[in-house]
Write a protein that binds this DNA or RNA. Structure first.
Lengths: 105, 105
DNA sequence: TCGTTATATCGGGAATTACCGATTTAAGTA
DNA sequence: TACTTAAATCGGTAATTCCCGATATAACGA
């Protein structure tokens, strides 16, 4: 992911955020420890999809797609460990995007 | 427009911005004086739709819809004077939204 | 009043998004 | 190997968005 965003990348990121469910998930990930326990520590590797899905109350495929969208927008990292994919906020990228939005506005 | 934004209002605003053309227009409106002359001073009342449409290179109806979207999102004000509707950035609201996005992220 | 200009709104086709269930892939475990 | 669990991907329907041309409205000017 480059340091600068062009029009389309910015639009893609904003589109990912233009969905209450995805923004909500991003907010939840600020407190990974509030999710049910998992083998790997959520504060380190992130929260596994199952737990995100459960809290969001959507289907498995929808949850997976949501996270893929957020990942494509560069807002979360994904770490596969064993059978689990863990999602964690990419704080640096989020700050970068926030700054970009601030400037674009 | 209230001082706080709920999930849906935030989503609506982000959706309005999730379109390069609309973001571009919002950027142009930072320099109203770079548009062709018009009867009313653009720096005061804003830029008339015609000029926005011309620069954007879209149809009249599309330009009108773009501005209605930005207006609905609270990002611009519209001032009708005679046959012209002038659009101007609502800086206070834009700052408010930017801050909201920063916090939501 | 009639004609013109500026804008808004209507109606629609194409493209995209939202979300789902079904299936596939990947990894663990017996 | 076969069974189970986790996640990704596929295929599809409904809803939404994009952008247009056509039409309606509003305001001006002759």
């Amino acid at each position: 992911m480059p340091d600068t965003l062009d029009d389309k990348e910015l639009a893609a990121a904003l589109k990912a955020l233009a969905n209450p469910a995805r923004v909500r998930i991003l907010g939840w990930l600020k407190e990974p420890e509030t999710f049910p326990p998992q083998l790997e520590p959520a504060t380190e590797v992130g929260v596994c999809l199952k737990h995100i899905q459960a809290r969001a109350g959507v289907s498995q495929s929808t949850a997976s797609q949501y996270m893929a969208d957020l990942h494509a927008a560069g807002l979360v990292t994904s770490t596969r460990i064993g059978q689990w994919t863990h999602y964690r906020r990419d704080e640096a990228q989020i700050r970068r995007l926030a700054e970009h939005i601030r400037l674009a506005l």
